[in-house]
Design a protein around this nucleic acid. Structure first.
Lengths: 364, 364
DNA sequence: CGTGTTTACTTAATCGTTTACCTTCTTAAG
DNA sequence: CTTAAGAAGGTAAACGATTAAGTAAACACG
């Protein structure tokens, strides 16, 4: 016992004396601290965790020695014992064309990351790779890694795996998709489309086309809001004004824009599925020798950063990615830390119309 | 003993019978499998890890039961015992204006993620938040989490914390920065700038300005390559053609462009620090009633996605983010799995000139 | 003074794996 | 038949923490 103390003590001294060597592999553990302080490991644990059945003096000394020795907890051991990882998974499936390379999701993730890190949590991507050793589903991967919670940010919400995950009992928050009995944070697409269309209407436009994205709950919200708002404003929208082009597909946007411009009575303003697509629209329009917004007005959706730096700056519905990420993070952590008292609810985040120069004021 | 077996067996049956309930909290462990199979835990472990001192039949049975019971390993326990996490940290400091929201890094990260996930590793962000419980430095966070390796992708490379990290003995790979004795993956900024400037030269330009980004090793490479190439081509670059504007700062690009256009002998082509800035240049030029590329040519650097969808499409040096991310990932994992035989080297990834319409062909 | 309470610890079990080292049984060679 | 080797599996000690339960000393109080 006495010998072990000395040994541990010496090892400690070595570590201290050569602070930045390459072979700094050894992590100092509670055992090392306990040896140096001459107390039990349990005492060290309690002292560091600020338990109250430890003497003031001892606590102080243990903490100081721990500091000096450069102690930090072994997360794996802590996890194993406590079943808490202080790590949240983020589901970012990018088999479709999106994920990290999509401004909207990247910005949300950035904000989410800041939010949870501030509260002492780390972020790990839920491995979407099927070849991952042992685990075959998202849920298994999450359990295997012991995530305290999972943010489902960007994925195919209709896959059975996702359903399995949200039903598993692990705290989950979804972004822009609603499941029964699952917390969700939603960008207000209904209000957003209403604001956007109303803005366009107020600028004098009466013939407004909408190229919507591929089917999803987001698309549905926007589309129905478009129809509803149009109705309220007394606009008649001919069927051929409603087109489809996948999100962020400039080719598709190009094609549909041509279709719209070739109509006998073309629209005076086109709303695109997203900003990226809107720029696809710019191109056709310019190619035809027409100008935005003088000859035709254009509106986007998202509010990606570049949109306000390209002339004519794009009028678009700017989604509040910072707030979205923050809400996802806060809700998730609340769910983790206060599972009983946290409301299962849908949090709606408002966007706003960013007024660029792409929608003209027209009269009559 | 007999009783424990039965109990465990029954618990197992329950789990199987109510497959998707909310209270699916219990993770089936090796102990459960061992009880059902009537073998020891050690045998189960060996069977699942495909050790060779286990009978064929037993191995098969254990594996099948494990499958049926929905077993997957507890990562924390495995980590604790083996000191391997199959988890790599990614250092993505975004206190400056970049990080996830920067196309270049986001694309690299996306590729890195794909690469390591394919090999069975997960990605966790190195927590850059100082308030994180217990750990105060990147290194401590990494050790605490037990990362097998760390990819240093986007950060202030001059901070002492980073130095501590790369010297710690944890496998690390840096992107676009060179440390002594540390693996690095570099986008070839020297060749890139040379190619870009040569392209511009061949288009007939003799008065080329370069607005470079804020100081960093990347900036230095590009700038010195610019000078060197200019010399080789016989171009004389007046001092006032070399300007500075921070990366991705459209305001700065705007300002410097004005400066350049106001010169007595303005350049015929301006190279910007990045594509984002180049669009800032577009704006001034358009505002002044000039046109790209007829009146002045513009080149960017990066090759962000949107650049090829905006007219005039931007001529830019397209960095190969997919390859960069892949190389970082592969090198890192090689370093982790074969520390002795992996070369400590610098991998250089080539880019290519993306030929848009923003650089005019001029004669004389 | 005896008894109960509080304080400040220690002991030891435990989380779910891995693995060095046994044990037992089978088989083949001498 | 004896013995050594090999195959198949078991035992138990880790890994680094947490925590219920126990203990010894100090203190309080009628």
């Amino acid at each position: 016992m006495e010998i072990r103390k000395r040994l541990s003590d010496m090892r400690h001294m070595q570590t201290l004396m050569i602070p930045l060597v390459e072979e700094d592999k050894h992590m100092v553990s509670m055992k090392d601290i306990s040896a140096v302080c001459g107390v039990s490991v349990a005492t060290v644990s309690k002292a560091l965790n600020d338990q109250n059945d430890i003497g003031k003096e001892t606590k102080k000394r243990v903490r100081q020695v721990a500091e000096e020795m450069g102690y930090f907890p072994n997360t794996a051991a802590k996890m194993l014992k406590t079943n808490r990882s202080y790590n949240v998974g983020v589901l970012f499936n990018h088999e479709d064309y999106s994920g990290l390379t999509h401004d909207y999701y990247a910005f949300v993730l950035d904000s989410l990351k800041n939010t949870v890190e501030e509260k002492g949590y780390d972020i790990t991507f839920v491995n979407t790779n099927k070849h991952h050793a042992g685990s075959t589903s998202y849920l298994e991967h999450c359990k295997s890694r012991g995530f305290d919670g999972v943010a489902i940010v960007c994925t195919d919400f209709y896959s059975p795996e996702i359903l399995q995950l949200v039903r598993s009992g692990i705290p989950t928050v979804t972004l822009d998709h609603l499941f029964n009995n699952v917390c969700a944070v939603m960008s207000n697409n209904v209000q957003g489309m209403q604001d956007l269309l109303t803005y366009i209407y107020k600028k004098g436009h009466r013939r407004v086309a909408y190229i919507h994205g591929a089917d999803s709950s987001v698309t549905q919200s926007r589309l129905s809001s478009f129809y509803r708002t149009a109705g309220q404003l007394g606009l008649t929208i001919p069927d051929e004004y409603i087109r489809m082009s996948p999100y962020r597909d400039t080719k598709g946007a190009y094609r549909e824009t041509q279709y719209l411009l070739d109509l006998e009575e073309p629209p005076t303003c086109i709303i695109y599925p997203d900003d990226f697509s809107a720029f696809g629209g710019y191109n056709v329009i310019q190619e035809r020798g027409l100008r935005v917004p003088d000859d035709i007005s254009v509106a986007g959706y998202d509010g990606i950063r570049i949109a306000r730096h390209i002339e004519p700056t794009l009028t678009t519905l700017c989604q509040d990615t910072t707030e979205l990420g923050r809400q996802v993070g806060e809700k998730l952590i609340s769910l983790i830390e206060h599972p009983k008292t946290t409301l299962v609810e849908t949090i709606v985040v408002e966007g706003h119309v960013y007024e660029g120069n792409s929608v003209a004021e027209i009269s009559g």
